[in-house]
Design a protein around this nucleic acid. Sequence first.
DNA 1: TTAATATTTCCATAACATTGGAAATATAGA
DNA 2: TCTATATTTCCAATGTTATGGAAATATTAA
Lengths: 105, 105
Amino acid sequence: MKVKVAVEALAALAQESRLAVFRLLVQAGQAGVSAGALGDKLGIPPATLSFHLKTLFHAGLVQSRTEGRFVIYSANFTEMDRLIAYLTEHCCAGDATQCAPIRKC
Amino acid sequence: MKVKVAVEALAALAQESRLAVFRLLVQAGQAGVSAGALGDKLGIPPATLSFHLKTLFHAGLVQSRTEGRFVIYSANFTEMDRLIAYLTEHCCAGDATQCAPIRKC
DNA sequence: TTAATATTTCCATAACATTGGAAATATAGA
DNA sequence: TCTATATTTCCAATGTTATGGAAATATTAA
């Protein structure tokens, strides 16, 4: 992963509403959630939500598909995993006892 | 982890110089790297580097200790792991086949 | 104490991000 | 077609962040 891509992804997540949206989509899995449902659940006005979704989309963290009148957003798990790998790359000078975790769903 | 803590950590990482500093410290492990050595390796002027280190420190992502005239910075792996756990919490609607990775040092 | 080295604080400038109302666009169903 | 619903674009005001030179502060060794 290139530096600028990682910075853009982190910047996209470094905002309270966008982080809430992303985490909600992470928990929803591939099924995703419509823009309207996201706005309702999180109490974000349409214009603001649209702005934030565009930011997350541009950063490659979410995808969207259209179903009738709805636009369904879902998390891009591949990109999330790449970002985490980039952050933790070659960590702890190769000594696995220094850091910990193994993620499981 | 609380939202604001996560947002602050992500914002701290969402900047090219700070991300480079953090990744370098992640790779250095507990031994850490002095402020001056960081500046030399990354080509960041002292005032700018100090500003960025303060930001990373305030976000809880790095620690520092003084050794003689040197201030040695090191990554806070516990906080890094908490952040990753916060991002990936309850991911994929519980279906582990949707997302992937297992991190190893 | 003096000189050399290491790091931080101060500051002003410039660049970028967030907000939400109103209007525009798109789709579906009657 | 007409109406209701869903989402996006436009815009301007406000707030936040990044930069690096110069000066201040700390520590060590001679």
